[in-house]
Simulated scan of single mutants.
Amino acid sequence: MSTPVAELALGEAVCAALRAQVEKLGLSIGDEPVWAEARFEEKTDPFSQETSRIGTWRGKRRYGTVTLFPDGRVFAEYQVLLAHPVEADRYVESVQVWGRPERLRGDATIVEQV
């Protein structure tokens, strides 16, 4: 896949993009997620037979995953679990980022409180 230095830069970009999605909503999750705290395993897609690296953050307040696809694409999701800053009956469940490292796009999952 990629070299450790290149992957570290990629990881920092992914983590910063996840935090930026939260900040767009006027919220903060501090310095989470931390790339060095992700634990990785390889997983082969049964259809394409391509092997991706799947990273997981767990064991702290929030949970998240990142998938590094062989073609350079990324998909990451990280829990936020904070009240929506404007809509009192909603909360921000998670944020996602996807795409290529040089152009990550993202979105938030906002859920109605029950």
Rank of each mutant, 00 (worst) to 15 (best):
Q96G: 04
R39E: 12
R100L: 10
A6T: 10
Q96W: 08
R39A: 15
E23T: 02
V34G: 03
R58W: 14
A9L: 13
E50D: 14
A17C: 07
V34E: 11
R90Y: 15
A20C: 08
A20L: 10
P33I: 03
Q79R: 10
G26W: 05
S52T: 07
V114C: 10
S28V: 02
G26I: 00
L81A: 13
S48F: 11
V14C: 01
G72T: 09
V97M: 07
E37R: 12
A13Q: 14
E50M: 15
V34A: 08
L8N: 11
I29L: 00
Y78P: 00
P33L: 01
T67M: 10
S2K: 15
E77M: 07
Q21D: 02
S2I: 14
K43Q: 14
R53Y: 02
K43I: 08
V5H: 12
A83R: 15
Y91V: 09
V22D: 07
L25W: 01
P4M: 04
V5C: 04
I29N: 01
P70D: 09
G59W: 07
Y78C: 02
F75S: 08
L27C: 09
P70R: 05
D89Q: 13
R62S: 09
A6K: 13
V86W: 12
E12C: 09
R103L: 11
I29M: 02
T44R: 13
F47R: 14
E112W: 14
A20F: 07
Y78F: 12
I29G: 00
A13Y: 05
L68E: 08
A108Y: 05
V114E: 15
E42A: 12
A13C: 05
E93C: 13
L81K: 15
D71E: 11
T56G: 00
A76R: 05
P101F: 03
S48T: 09
D71M: 09
E50V: 10
E12G: 08
D71R: 07
P70C: 04
Y63N: 15
I29Q: 00
F75H: 13
K24I: 04
E42D: 12
A108T: 01
V97H: 02
G55Y: 01
T67K: 12
I29A: 00
A36S: 10
K24Y: 12
L104Q: 01
K24L: 14
L81Q: 15
